[in-house]
C-alpha cells in the first residue's frame, strides 16, 4: 500500500462551493498530489486559485465534493462531522495567518486546547503544553495572555498548539502573512527546525521567498495543479531560535 509512507494522497479532488442563491463556485477542479511523511511542502498560487480551499480539505475542515483524499492512510470521504473532528484533533495541527488564539485564555491554556478535546487530564495537558512551548522557544511566558505577545511570539504559540497533540501533519495558511519579513524568517526557521525533527509540514504562501524554505512547491492555478517545482537547495533561516 502506498499509504505506508504517504501522509496526504489526493486524486482528482473537486471542491465546489454552493452559494446561498444556488450558484456553484468550483474552487478546486481536479487536484492530484501527494505528500510523503517528513516532507516540507509549499503551495503557491494567485489569490483565488484555491490554496486555502485545498488546505481546508486537507485539514478536514471541509469535505471534498468529489475525488479521493486519504490522510495518513484514512479515507476521509464519507466521514461524518464527529469523525472529521476527531481526525483534526489527532492527526492535524493548524497554523493560521491570524494566529487565532483565545484571547481570554493564558498562553499555556491556549496551547493545551486541543488536548481538552482529546480528553487528556488537566495535569498532563499542562505538562505537554509547557513542553510544546519550550520547543518553540517560549518556555518562559506561560501565564501571559495573547494580547501581551508580539506577532512572532503569537505565531509561535499557535505553532506550539498545533504541535501539542503530536499530529501527523502540520498545516499553515499564510503563516507569515501578518508578520514583518524578519519575524517571518524566524517562523520559517521554526518550521525548518521542526522539519529536521521529522515533522511533515504543508504551508500555503504567496511569498516566493518563504516558499523556498521548503523542499517542494506545488503551484495552483484556477483550482488545478499547474506544476510542481522541487527546491534543490532550500533557504535556511538566519534567525533560528529553537530550543
Amino acid at each position: 500500500m502506498s499509504g505506508d509512507h504517504a501522509i496526504i494522497e489526493i486524486q482528482d479532488l473537486v471542491k465546489v462551493y454552493t452559494l446561498p442563491g444556488g450558484l456553484e463556485v468550483p474552487a478546486l477542479r481536479g487536484v492530484t498530489f501527494t505528500v510523503r511523511r517528513g516532507e516540507f511542502v509549499s503551495i503557491m498560487g494567485q489569490s483565488g486559485s484555491g490554496k486555502s480551499t485545498l488546505l481546508h480539505v486537507v485539514g478536514c475542515l471541509h469535505q471534498p465534493t468529489e475525488g479521493m483524499y486519504r490522510l495518513d492512510g484514512v479515507d476521509v470521504k464519507g466521514l461524518d462531522d464527529e469523525e472529521l473532528s476527531r481526525l483534526r484533533n489527532e492527526k492535524i495541527g493548524f497554523v493560521f495567518q491570524k494566529f487565532n488564539l483565545l484571547t481570554q485564555e493564558d498562553i499555556v491554556d491556549n496551547v493545551a486546547l486541543p488536548l481538552v478535546y482529546a480528553r487528556v487530564g488537566r495535569d498532563e495537558r499542562l505538562k505537554l503544553a509547557r513542553n510544546a512551548l519550550r520547543l518553540v522557544g517560549l518556555g518562559d511566558r506561560l501565564q501571559h495572555k495573547p494580547s501581551e505577545l508580539s506577532g512572532g511570539q503569537s505565531q509561535r504559540v499557535a505553532i506550539a498548539r498545533a504541535l501539542v497533540t503530536e499530529p501527523a501533519l502540520l498545516l499553515a495558511d499564510e503563516p507569515t502573512g501578518n508578520l514583518d519579513s524578519r519575524t517571518g524568517d524566524e517562523i520559517m526557521g521554526v518550521f525548518q527546525a521542526l522539519h529536521r525533527m521529522g515533522r511533515t509540514i504543508v504551508q500555503v504562501t504567496h511569498d516566493r521567498e518563504k516558499a523556498e524554505y521548503s523542499q517542494r512547491i506545488v503551484h495552483l492555478k484556477d483550482g488545478l495543479v499547474e506544476r510542481e517545482e522541487p527546491i534543490a537547495s532550500p533557504r535556511t533561516s538566519e534567525h533560528v531560535a529553537l530550543a
Partner: peptide
C-alpha cells in the same frame, strides 16, 4: 463565533 471556529479547528465536535 471566532472562538467557536478555533475550538472546532483544533478538534471540538458539534456536541462539545
Amino acid at each position: 463565533r471566532r472562538e467557536v471556529g478555533i475550538r472546532r479547528a483544533v478538534g471540538a465536535t458539534k456536541a462539545d
